[in-house]
Amino acid sequence: MALLRVEDLQIYFPIRGGILNRKIDDVRAVDGVSFEIEQGETYGLVGESGSGKTTTGKAVMGLNNITGGDIYFEDNHLNPGKGKKVDVRKDVQMIFQDPYSSLNPRKRVIDIIAEPIRNYEKLTKKQELRRVQELLEQVGLTPESIYKYPHEFSGGQRQRIGVARAIALKPKLIIADEPVSALDVSVQAQVLNFMQQIQKDLNLTFLFISHDLGVIRHMCDKIGIMYQGRFVEEGLRDEIFTDPQHIYTKRLVAAIPDIDPRRRQEHQQYREQVKEEYQNSFNDYFNEDGLAHSLKSITDTHRVALPERG
């Protein structure tokens, strides 16, 4: 049983226009996306801006209205308005991109971290204090920092506070939306290591959303590549990075800067070659609207959006 199952998810945003501001068309932010995440796994959602990866994450979190499709968490139907309402917000938490703006600057650390606890559990002041201190220790901050304000911390420490808040209710799934994009490399390393550590300690499942393929490769077991609201390819890490099948995936992978300057020439040539292939074979890989075809399975784990002709 998958922890999270998303089936044919569609999220359309209306385009309004005309004098009466009526809906004239839709933006198909997410257009038929399906994937499953197993317990304890880290699933990476990759795509460029506008690909719908964040919208997908928010939908799982219940922050977006869903136009169509189904989301199941532990086989409970999550769509608002369908079936009985299951409150999974306790089990699904989110870590945000910007540790500078996602923490209320006027609240002390204890209030920030205790906020979800206060919403769901009735604890005495003493119990709450002990709980917050435990959480801080878990994320590697000194328990004395509970009465400090966010600005007294560095970027990496703030992201840890954000994580402490996210794990306060012992969630099962954490949606991390670009959790390290705003951080310096060394701080980024700190947060990534730490996320892997708590994943092991708490048996967490991650939905990791990022545009940074280096980070995705480092963190994720399984990866879905999104383009304009659709999946173009999905597979295990090695399948995506060493054996990309879809031209868009190839192009993304080729665009990652190579850290070895000796291979610069070679890498540039390869990138140029992929770019040419991309331009020449665009019509083979995308339909007449420039959208990806539906996914076909290549192996048990590897699915690619290829046209019908086989």
């Binding site: 060394s186 892997q196 480092h218």
Partner: peptide
Amino acid sequence: SVPNAEGTDDKLH
């Protein structure tokens, strides 16, 4: 400390 392209499970520095 950079997650490198070889993508190992090693801890980052």
